[in-house]
């Protein structure tokens, strides 16, 4: 008889895996991606594919060149590429999208030690990088007719501008990034992530709720609804403020994280020159994440 295996417990496992989680996130993003292609046309599809392929390829090559264990199988690079593309407007040239993916994977993720080690959200950091580098193409929202133009968030601040109807806002018939406009698709993805227990509801709800309530106080109900549906708030709150690696590890701290994101987003949108603040708010809170964990630490049962 072969020697029995000696190991410490537990001797069973839930079967959860990194790859399954990443696959769930990809599946949850698909409705938004499909909606983006339907609304903005086939060029959105090319940009999505470019970003995903560039992300996977750069992780593959980085591991190869640095003689590290190959990690593309965990699908996290696909998530990064997909998220980046959905945060870009469809008129962004393909090469800029690809550059963004390389930046996200190599500079923000791999150089910090790969999956689980980066402190900032790769997709968001890359988007902000592209925004700085190629302001003219990245900042403007693509309109459903294919031209680049003002997004509802630009318009809210403008006197007498014609805003899309609320139904148009909900279905995504408005200017913006590929994956951020169709709220319906994002909510389907949100529901899927909740059912699969990949994320908890508190973070997106607190994030969006904070922006909504503050807008309500400062601008009234109608404005608050537009603020909620416009820009990248739902996409950011559901998919990026819930990123595991760059947010605190405890739910308690994550709720404070979400509150901070909501506050900063509102302040940027309302008081600053920039029309949108979701990306910056998440990036700021990424830096605060370890501190939030510390500040909200509680006494363990039977401990001090």
């Amino acid at each position: 008889m072969e020697k029995p295996i000696m190991s410490s417990g537990p001797h069973i496992h839930s079967g959860a895996s990194d790859r399954r989680i990443m696959l769930d996130v990809i599946l949850a993003l698909l409705p938004a991606a499909v909606a983006g292609v339907v609304i903005f046309g086939v060029k959105a599809l090319w940009l999505i594919l470019t970003c995903v392929i560039a992300a996977v390829l750069s992780e593959f090559l980085f591991n190869l060149i640095c003689k590290k264990k190959q990690t593309v199988g965990d699908l996290s690079a696909v998530v990064t590429g997909l998220l980046l593309a959905l945060n870009l407007s469809a008129n962004v040239p393909l090469w800029q999208g690809a550059l963004g993916s390389v930046f996200a994977i190599v500079l923000v993720k791999c150089l910090f030690g790969g999956i689980g080690r980066n402190f900032a959200n790769p997709a968001i950091t890359a988007r902000v990088f592209l925004l700085m580098a190629f302001t003219s193409t990245v900042a403007g929202g693509t309109l459903p007719d294919g031209t680049t133009g003002a997004t509802p968030l630009d318009l809210i601040g403008t006197e007498g501008a014609q805003l899309p109807t609320l139904l148009q806002m909900f279905l995504g018939q408005r200017g913006g990034a590929i994956g951020e406009t169709c709220i319906l698709a994002l909510l389907i993805g949100f529901a899927y992530l909740l059912i699969r227990k990949v994320i908890s509801w508190q973070v997106p709800v607190i994030f969006m709720g904070t922006v909504f309530v503050l807008s309500l106080i400062f601008g009234g109900f109608n404005t608050a609804v537009y603020e909620l549906l416009a820009g990248g708030l739902v996409l950011g709150a559901v998919f990026m403020a819930t990123d595991y690696t760059t947010t605190p590890i405890t739910l308690r701290a994550r709720m404070w994280f979400a509150l901070g994101c909501g506050l900063i987003t509102f302040v940027i949108r309302w008081f600053c020159a920039l029309p949108e603040g979701v990306s910056y708010s998440i990036l700021c809170m990424n830096i605060l994440a370890p501190w939030l964990e510390k500040w909200t630490r509680r006494k363990p049962l039977g401990g001090v």
């Binding site: 990194d18 790969g114 999956i115 595991y244 590890i249 405890t250 739910l251 049962l301 401990g303």
Partner: peptide, 17 residues
């Protein structure tokens, strides 16, 4: 594989560790 910081171990710990 490396920890992805998902927080499940923290959420499930009966003692809050």
């Amino acid at each position: 594989s490396p920890c992805i910081h998902c927080g499940r171990c923290v959420a499930v710990c009966p003692l809050g560790l």
